[in-house]
């Protein structure tokens, strides 16, 4: 194992330089005083100040957050239901179609998902806006949630649920008191995944957004098409910062929770 270590060190180092250097450059140059993004002209935070005064971006950011919170919550509820159906409901008519509709959106190119939803919304005469983006995001995110949750449902011991039922729980109580706490980590990571997918999405939002609602990715995309701009660098830096803090604290919390659960299980075994 140790013999290849120089090779391993080199490939890990180069790999991480490749993954992280572009973002480091982006962050560094967001503090550049010059309007020319590629020429360093001293430290400045003026692009952040300018960004804070840019109403259009702030509005778009607000729309994006609203869409992401609502669609990921809805997607988590629907996706958890779908996962429960896939793993626990046994056989029913149209089960194959159901699981097909869960997995197909995962591999469907975004341009097709976006196009087909837009044609539906036009077909039924639904005005495009925040509401249609939420419907679209919920639909594709619920499939991701159900995959995450069902992998957890498959691995847990069904006897626990049966014990709760034997002890007089109703089916719903058994779900709420036994199943849900056990699958909670998967439900939470499903929600986080749905949330980031929604924040991130450009293509589906472009198809389903109307003139009344613009999300941040749509705004960034139209600005970026014209070339690199220091304001977008500042915006990107803020977004990278939020994600980094979020992911690191989420992983710390889940690590602590799993340690606590282990300790509790050990204590329960001992008594």
């Amino acid at each position: 194992m140790k013999r290849m270590s120089w090779f391993n060190t080199v490939s890990i180092t180069l790999g991480f330089v490749f993954l992280y250097l572009p973002m480091v450059i982006l962050v560094v140059y967001s503090f550049n005083a010059s309007k020319l993004v590629t020429v360093w002209a001293g430290f400045s935070t003026k692009w952040y100040v300018e960004l804070m005064g840019n109403e259009a971006f702030l509005d778009a950011a607000w729309v994006t957050v609203k869409v992401a919170v609502l669609s990921s919550t809805l997607a988590t509820v629907l996706g958890t239901m779908a996962a429960y159906v896939l793993v626990r409901a046994g056989r029913f008519h149209g089960r194959t179609l159901f699981s097909g509709m869960i997995y197909a959106p995962l591999v469907m190119p975004e341009v097709i998902t976006g196009l087909s939803l837009l044609l539906l919304f036009i077909g039924i005469g639904l005005d495009r806006g925040i509401f249609t983006i939420i419907l679209a995001h919920t639909t594709f995110a619920m499939c991701y949630v159900s995959v995450v949750v069902s992998s957890r449902l498959v691995s847990f011991d069904r006897a626990l649920e049966e014990a709760a039922l034997d002890l007089g729980c109703t089916q719903f109580q058994a779900f709420r008191l036994v199943t849900l706490p056990i699958i909670a980590p998967a439900v939470i990571s499903g929600w986080l995944l749905a949330f980031t997918l929604s924040l991130d999405d450009l293509v589906i939002a472009s198809f389903t957004a109307g003139p009344s609602a613009t999300t941040l990715p749509i705004k960034i995309f139209s600005a970026v098409r014209l070339g690199v701009s220091p304001e977008i660098n500042a915006l990107s830096t803020i977004m990278i910062g939020i994600v980094t803090v979020g992911v690191i604290s989420a992983s710390l919390i889940s690590k602590r929770a799993s340690l606590r659960q282990q300790a509790e299980e050990q204590a329960a075994v001992r008594t």
Binding site: L19, Y20, P22, M23, I25, L26, Y29, V37, T38, T196, L199, D200, L202, P217, I220, F221, V224, G227, V228, I232, N233, S236, M239, I240, V243, T244, G246, V247
Partner: peptide, 17 residues
Amino acid sequence: LPFWTSFLIRVYSWMGI
């Protein structure tokens, strides 16, 4: 970690490079 950061921003970062 990079997977959680915006896809659009990751693509954009290469435009300047």
